[in-house]
Amino acid sequence: MSEIADKVKKIVVEHLGVEESKVTPEASFIDDLGADSLDTVELVMAFEEAFNVEIPEDAAEKIATVKDAIDYIEKQKAA
């Protein structure tokens, strides 16, 4: 797993208070990890802070799973 994926996973575990094993790439923040809409706002902010990236609102709305987040951040970092 990439460094970015590791860090994303850690942030999700910390913010949503879920077990690490549940944070699979396919896991949906809302459907599988018990997040509500405010939790996802906070998560995106935590990603922005941790990776020093800007995630605009329209992009944030499309980040539904752990993989979505990893992919988006990796793309930003590669750019």
Binding site: L38, E42, M45
Partner: peptide, 10 residues
């Protein structure tokens, strides 16, 4: 300000 927690008000 953009980093303000969405949980600040509640």
């Amino acid at each position: 300000a953009k980093r303000l927690s969405p949980f600040f008000i509640p």
